[in-house]
Design a protein around this nucleic acid. Structure first.
Lengths: 196, 196
DNA sequence: TTGTATTTTCAGTATATACTGAAAATTCAG
DNA sequence: CTGAATTTTCAGTATATACTGAAAATACAA
């Protein structure tokens, strides 16, 4: 590996963290390097820069493409495949979240759904099923929230994040608020939907 | 392994999902079984139920305790150590989130912090550093939001989640809202803090 | 103390995952 | 078509991680 020091530090870090994020070292390093590169990169450039075998790089790229974390690009008069990340880092976060949900949450949710349909045959199973139902309801609530947020445009989302917990201070007074007469599109007191 | 079918399905699922969640099979199964059990369990009961070696169970318990996912309990007139999960599932979610942040986010954030202090020596490094700064700012925004939310009491948090994206509809009208005179503790129009 | 119950550690082994090189498949210019 | 450039596949090998059994450490009743 022969990279500028700043870039090398970042690339190695992503390689090491890979295992904690559910990807392997190669995939982590490939992603890091593409993320930092202004221009799309091809497989040979990745081989040269990172020192993995051609086949390992190919597999890594394949995984990243399937996760929607890197995109195939073509350069005029060049037969090679080039790869780039999204320019918009928020798009990256959305894809990451989507990927994790698919891999880490959805299978559990469907397992829970089916299991809480079954009839418990003992005291012990009855308690266990109750615990599973709690978990199921909680995950469903969180994923519902996630779906709502996932739909928001980036700038709205940023505003919401910046508000942080303060948003709740607004929320808790919702029944005490009213609208200045004449404000276009504003809701009347009591006409809100509390989401239950 | 000899468990009631409902429980066995759940336990095996947690074992399989373990790798995707950054824990191993043993740890996943141990956690699942303790979570479903009404009473605290000791290491021998876990060995009998799951069929792993005593030492493997001990290591698994140790890891779960260090993650704050299971707690040591003692039963009168019994020298054995018993373990239980939190009754409150929201407490579990908080601990899980905290653990993931520590393992998956904090190291990257500190790497980024130090690297964006350095002086880039080339065009290439300059672009890379800009990308890193974007990532740093985004992660910092997300963790700030997370810290805010982490501090909230459970019932407030649930209300907030149930509101989902609808909260933003309230937020965007904040400047058009006023307070019914006499409402205790309510804020006046324009007196809010927009978090910037 | 001593002896027994219990937990923890750790070197060795098994299993799972990552990685490679060679060969096969695909793509596309001529 | 043909054949060179390029990508993909996959069996074999290397590396990393999980797991075990035996031995050491700890806890505590007598």
């Amino acid at each position: 590996m022969n990279l500028p020091p700043l870039i090398q530090t970042f690339v190695l870090h992503f390689g090491e963290m890979g295992s904690r994020w559910g990807i392997n070292r190669t995939v982590g390093q490939i992603y890091a390097l593409i993320y930092l590169s202004e221009k799309p990169l091809n497989a040979d450039q990745l081989v040269d820069a990172l020192g993995f075998s051609r086949s390992n790089i190919a597999m890594g790229i394949k995984e990243l493409v399937s996760m929607n974390l890197v995109m195939l690009r073509h350069i005029p008069d060049d037969r090679k495949d080039y790869y780039a990340t999204h320019d918009d880092i928020w798009e990256i976060v959305r894809n990451l979240a989507e990927e994790r949900k698919k891999r880490e949450v959805d299978p559990t949710l469907s397992m829970l759904r089916s299991i809480i349909m079954d009839t418990p045959v003992s005291e012990e199973e009855q308690y266990a099923q109750e615990r599973m139902r709690e978990m199921h309801d909680l995950i469903e609530m969180l994923t519902q929230w996630y779906d709502d947020v996932q739909k928001m445009e980036t700038d709205r989302l940023i505003n919401l994040l910046k508000m942080g917990a303060k948003i709740y201070n607004l929320y808790q007074f919702k029944d005490k608020l009213t609208v200045i007469p004449g404000s276009k599109g504003a809701k009347k007191k009591g006409s809100h939907n509390d989401g239950t």
